[in-house]
Write a protein that binds this DNA or RNA. Structure first.
Length: 572
RNA sequence: GCACCCAUAGCUCAGCUGGAUAGAGCGCUGCCCUCCGAAGGCAGAGGUCAAAGGUUCGAAUCCUUUUGGGUGCGCCA
């Protein structure tokens, strides 16, 4: 039951009736007609802007349309009253029984709030995609959680979602990794080594060096790079990816696919992708202007092979081949997105760190060009995470060895808290993460507040179960009960808004509000025993009362499920 | 120099394909809590939505310009 969709459908069909009866011109576009909860509860249960949206194309006064619409809507059994207000809003009051219907439908079948808006369309969410050169750190954590929750959200909204990780194993940085592992390997053989600039000195490679020794013995000792680089690179990359998969597993993240950049080279895939662009006359040889104001001291004009990105909204054309004839990093990116498009995804979403903002336009240009603008690409940038401990900023430094890994965070606060907190901000807003505050048990900690509401629900239901009682037809009468049921009715609508905007944080904020309404009702029960869910004297009344909290529990678990957070049965 | 993101209450932040008197938490002020569901509750004050123009029946939301902060900018991925 999607109450807002139902009432909107009622409004639209009523408008059609009016057109039929010549009260409105025929063929009006109703796509901008909305039915939404009014900001002020005094305005009723729902409001529609139909009259204002249609006034101009119908060449009528908004109030005239609104009044005619109101007269017809009032005939529907679900509508108690329809009043014209303000500039032409139509405020609807719904039959009191409707809130009990909402609660009943939450309990009637699993999946209340699941949407078909995706219609099974294939969408890819690419996220994390960290270089395979070390463990994931906090910055990656946010992208990982965001991408994963977004993927779940889209799945919940009826899309066919693929979660994918792009392994940057084709560039120079995996050579650096290989050399670093080689040094650890020599170390494992008892040699003294020095980590120069441009190598990774992290301790996490010690075990990899030892594992390499266990595998190949002394075969590579004191040999030139040409003897070992390829093999060590492969060995090291695999070791890093194993590490990263474990990191992701700590957060409950499981990718559907890991896509290797290296697999694009020497297989003709890059050539095929570039060829596709060439066929559209989007590849040419040319010379770029130097960027102004950046003072490139060694700038010299140079002819390069370029992709005509400006044809699709980018600021400049982008080089795809170096002067030595090798591909630039951008070429495999083109091939990778060519591959995504050819796998039949209708929508592609990439989750990047905010420092990759500069690539947004060129990638959009690539996808638009490759798909003839048929495939949409949305790039979500996640902003920085600032760490705090007891309110004090916590500085990260690789050099000082104080950089915080994903594993550190999960170890300290657990996967559920990590995930929820990472989603309590919009993706493009910076996030403060305080190791102490996120564990605080108080109202200003959303994680606790939402979990506490769920725990209270479970506690009530356990108590009822122990007394042999189950939920019966709900009675929703008190204002606090109605507010809570109304909030439940908003859930399907909220899911669709969140999915349409690719913004899973809206789920977290909704859950906080839902928990707030639930706690408010609970608190009212403190003063007014009639509002308690468990009625000591009356099993029948208890059965009627517990339907509402049970429904709240269902929606909270569904919402937390999207966020990847486990709902708790009790607090600690 | 250019591009992208951001700017909302003292603080941290929400704000729906543009909707009515812009919301929440913290902090602040006042009241309530011997017991019954207080790891609290209720109520209140607090705003030039960075600034100025524009679009429209209607703008925090869309467009332009300006200011302030962040990120990035040809043979590094």
């Amino acid at each position: 039951m999607h109450l807002f969709a139902e009432i909107r459908a009622l409004v639209i069909s009523t408008l059609d009736d009016m057109a039929e009866a010549a009260e409105l011109p025929a063929g009006l576009d109703t796509k901008n007609v909305t039915v939404e909860p009014p900001r002020d509860a005094a305005h009723g249960d729902m409001a529609t802007n139909a009259a204002m949206v249609l006034a101009k194309p119908a060449k009528m006064k908004p109030r005239d349309i609104a009044e005619a619409l109101a007269a017809r809507l009032a005939g529907d059994p679900r509508v108690v009253s329809a009043e014209v207000a303000g500039p032409g809003f139509l405020n609807l009051r719904l039959a009191p029984g409707i809130w009990a219907d909402v609660v009943r439908s939450v309990l009637a079948a699993p999946g209340f709030g699941r949407s078909q808006m995706g219609q099974g369309r294939k969408v890819m969410v690419e996220y994390v995609s960290a270089n395979p050169t070390g463990p994931l750190h906090v910055g990656h954590t946010r992208g990982a959680v965001f991408g994963d929750a977004l993927a779940s959200l889209l799945d919940y909204a009826g899309f066919d979602v693929t979660r994918e990780y792009y392994i940057n194993d084709g560039g120079a940085q995996v050579d650096v990794l290989a050399r670093s592992v080689y040094l650890r390997y020599l170390e494992a053989h008892g040699q003294e080594v020095a980590f120069e600039d441009g190598t990774y000195p992290g301790d996490y490679l010690i075990a990899v060096g030892e594992a390499l020794k266990a595998k190949v013995g002394d075969a590579f000792v004191d040999k030139g790079e040409q003897f070992w680089l390829t093999e060590v690179r492969e060995f090291a990359t695999e070791a890093m990816m194993a590490l990263i998969r474990e990191d992701l597993a700590q957060l409950g993240i499981e990718m559907d696919n890991y896509f290797s950049e290296k697999s694009l080279y020497d297989t003709g895939k890059i050539e095929a992708a570039i060829g596709s662009l060439e066929a559209k006359d989007l590849i040419y040889r040319g010379v770029l202007e130097p960027p102004k104001g950046k003072a490139p001291e060694d700038w010299e004009p140079r002819e390069q092979t370029l992709f005509r990105a400006t044809a699709y909204g980018d600021d400049v054309d982008r080089p795809i081949m170096k002067s030595d004839g090798a591909w630039t990093y951008f070429a495999p990116d083109i091939a990778y997105h060519y591959d995504k498009v050819s796998r039949g995804f209708e929508a592609i979403i990439n989750v990047f760190g905010a420092d990759h903002g500069g690539y947004v336009k060129r990638l959009k240009a690539v996808v638009a060009a490759l798909s003839d603008e048929k495939v949409s690409l949305d790039i979500k940038l996640t902003q920085l995470v600032k760490l705090f401990k007891n309110g004090q900023p916590f500085k990260m430094s690789k050099r000082a060895g104080t950089f915080v890994t994903l594993r550190d965070v999960v170890k300290q606060v657990g996967p559920d808290v990590t995930r929820f907190v990472m989603l309590t901000r919009k993706n493009d807003a910076p996030l403060d993460f305080d190791f102490d505050k996120v564990l605080e048990q108080s109202k200003d900690n959303p994680v606790f507040y939402v979990q506490y509401a769920h725990a209270r629900v479970r506690s009530v239901l356990r108590k009822a179960e122990a007394a042999g009682l189950a939920a019966a037809a709900p009675r929703i009468e008190d204002a606090a009960e109605i507010d809570l049921a109304k909030k439940l009715a908003e859930w399907p609508r909220l899911v669709e808004i969140a999915a349409r905007t690719n913004e899973p944080h809206r789920i977290a904020f909704y859950l906080y509000e839902l928990a707030g309404n639930f706690h408010a009702l609970w608190n009212k029960g403190n003063d007014n025993p009639d509002l308690r869910f468990f009625q000591e004297q009356s099993p029948g009344a208890t059965s009627e009362k517990i339907a509402l909290p049970e429904a709240v529990g269902v929606v909270i678990s569904a919402g937390l499920g999207i966020l990847g957070v486990t709902p708790v049965e009790e607090m600690r």
